[in-house]
Amino acid sequence: MMQDPMVRFQNVTKRHGSHIVVDGLNLDVARNEKVAIIGASGSGKTSLLRMLMALDPVDSGEIFIEGEPLTHMERQGKRLPPDMAHIRRMRGKVGMVFQSFNLFPHLTAMGNCIEAPMRVLGLTRAAAIERATELLEMVGLASRKDYYPSQLSGGQQQRVAIARALAMRPKVMLFDEVTSALDPETVGEVLTVIRRLGEEHDLTMMVVTHQMGFAREFADRVCFLHQGRICEEAPARDFFHNPQNERTRAFLRAVLEAG
C-alpha cells in the first residue's frame, strides 16, 4: 500500500454531450503532495476535482484513492459499478471547498462544521463542537462561530467552508477556484489559511487556481491543463521559470498580462 499514490487518474475521460471535457487524462498525486492545477476555463480542471469527489461519474477510465478504485468495485474478483455504500466510503477520504462557498445558510458557522461529523462520523455533539472549535480557531473565526453565513464576508464564509471540510478528516483536500468569487481584499486571508494548512498538516491537496503567485510558492508541482489533457507538469519553480510547452508559455503570458 505504501507505494500506491494517494490519488491516481488512469486514462480518465469525461464528456458533456459531444464535448470532451477531460480526455484520457493520467495523473498521480503522492501522499501529502500539493498539486496546483491551472489552465484556461473549460480546460477540465473543475471536472477533475468533481470526479474525484464523486459528484460527477467518469465516462471511462479509472480513479484510485490510496490504491482503491473509486470508479468501480471488486467483488469476488468481479468488476462492478460502484454502489452507494462504496461511493460513500470512498468519499469519506476526500473533502472539497467550492468556488461559491456553498455554506448551509440556515446553520451558523458552528452548525455548518458539526452537522456532517455528527450525522456521518457519528460524533457526539460535544465531540463535534470541540473539533469544530479547533478548526474555526485555525481559520481565525472562533469569535464568529455563532454567525450565520449571511452575516459573514466572502472570505470569512470561505474559511468556514474550509473548516467544515476539514472537520470530516479527509486525506485529500480539493480546492476549486476558492478565491475566484471573493473581493480582492479578502483573497489573501483565504490563501493564508490554505498555505498554513499545507505547512502544518499531513494532507494531500489539489488546488485549482488562477492565482499564479500562489501556485508558485504553495505547490510542489504544477499541472497545466489544456483541452482536457495535462499539457505540461513540472515542479512549481521549473514550471514558471522555464515552461517547455508553447501553449503553457502563451497561457502564462496571457495571465501575466491580465495582472
Binding site: M53, A54, R88, R91, M96, A165
Partner: peptide
C-alpha cells in the same frame, strides 16, 4: 443545486 453538492461532498446521505 450547490447545496446538494455541498452535502454530498460532506458525505451526507
Amino acid at each position: 443545486l450547490h447545496q446538494w453538492e455541498a452535502g454530498l461532498a460532506l458525505n451526507l446521505s
